[in-house]
Design a protein around this nucleic acid. Structure first.
Lengths: 227, 227
DNA sequence: ACTTCTTAAGCTGTATACAGCTATACTGAT
DNA sequence: ATCAGTATAGCTGTATACAGCTTAAGAAGT
């Protein structure tokens, strides 16, 4: 359940593993926007000095997800509406490229994985399971990255995912049932496309459902500010 | 001529300025692929300790332009052909988005700049002026970035530029006249588009000339390996 | 001459001490 | 009671010492 804290003394934490852990926590909202991240605290948690932690944080800064100010601290950024719009607009354009730029062969492993995700998504409860909702999306993202053969596109797809994730998952908590239904439909359509070895379709499905997700964000987030 | 080394004691170097300087040197081939970058040397040159230099290098690592191995050193990466192909393929797709996702108003400053670049490009000599060729392209890139209003797209456009630049400029040394002629034509077409406030056209022009550049790379770089 | 082991040089990775910046709480005068 | 000024706590930024890894040169045995 909490693999990270259990491995403190098992495996020595590298800069990369610390980077990944912090990034994942930001995505999964364990570190929420506005929260202060203290280098010293993270260092003691991971059992290292501040040096590797600083290194990891420094890289995350490039994703525009945290901001470090001298003398003050490091805080998780609250993305302004315009930045969120930029991320989603770009993501909408990147999605179809997954199909046109990829030549990956879909294997049984992929099919098994999507089947697993569908089953878990169907068991989601409106209340209490927001964590599971997030995890399913997270694993779906990794599955899709595995299908993208162009390394640069994969990198960009990941970057926009990291930037979009925390906003998107916050909305899911509010939207509840609508988000869950949408996810089940998305997974089912993806399964069909994968069975047909149709990566072009995968790209377009992504494009469609990112559009739905963005619509929910505009509805629940942006609208609530203008009232 | 050598502004960087002159400012050693003028302004205190920040991590950001060190990062930018090293990155620019890699792009402009002052640091060529395969070259070893020693943290200690860079530190003494910039008049700081290894700590900020390490920070800067660590961020550049994420652009896949350098590689640091423990006990060995930091070397400028020689991108394999497949990676170059990935960069250019993605860049071809991003180019049209410059037009469709931007709403920037073109000002007289932009027009003056492109006029300046055209004059300088027309004065390029086949021999001896490869440095000027690189600088004109570099400034053109900054001009285009200034036109991209979507912050995420701008970031991605920059990233692909950094990754493509060193390969592209190495080819220009070989191709010589062909590259220069192509640049003059590109700048002239861009000037027309800018005068018409037509960012869509700007995007398509970029798309076209990136294609030409990639064709030259395939001709001079990839072909020479298969003989 | 050749192979193998040892050793040393040179680099990056990490820990730690300290300098510098910022926000806040507190003090004192008005 | 209010406000200006000051002291202080707590954070990040930097310098430095040292540990650990890698490579290559050289010595010793065959």
């Amino acid at each position: 359940m909490n693999a990270n804290s259990l491995t403190i003394e098992d495996a020595p934490h590298t800069v990369q593993s610390i980077h990944d852990t912090i990034l994942e926590r930001i995505c999964l909202l364990d570190f929420h926007p506005g929260q202060q991240l203290k280098e010293a605290d993270l260092a003691t948690e991971f059992g290292v000095s501040r040096t590797p932690v600083r290194d990891a944080l420094s890289r995350i800064t490039h994703l525009n997800l945290i901001e470090t100010r001298n003398g003050v601290g490091t805080v998780v950024k609250e993305l302004p509406d315009q930045k969120i719009a930029d991320v989603y607009t770009t993501r909408l354009e990147l999605a179809p490229l997954i199909g046109t730029l990829s030549t990956t062969k879909i294997t049984q492993v992929h099919l098994d994985k999507i089947q697993d995700l569908i089953l878990r998504a169907k068991n989601l409860d409106d209340e209490k399971s927001s964590r599971s909702y997030v995890l399913i999306n997270h694993e779906l993202h990794q599955l899709l990255c595995d299908l993208i053969s162009n390394s640069v596109l994969r990198s960009f797809w990941r970057q926009t995912y990291y930037q979009a994730a925390s906003v998107w998952y916050r909305i899911a908590d509010i939207a509840g049932e609508a988000s869950i239904l949408s996810l089940v439909n998305e997974l089912t359509e993806l399964q069909t496309a994968l069975k047909n070895q149709d990566l072009i379709a995968v790209g377009h499905i992504q494009r469609i459902y990112i559009g739905y997700g963005y619509a929910r964000i505009q509805q629940y987030l942006f609208d609530s500010k203008t009232k």
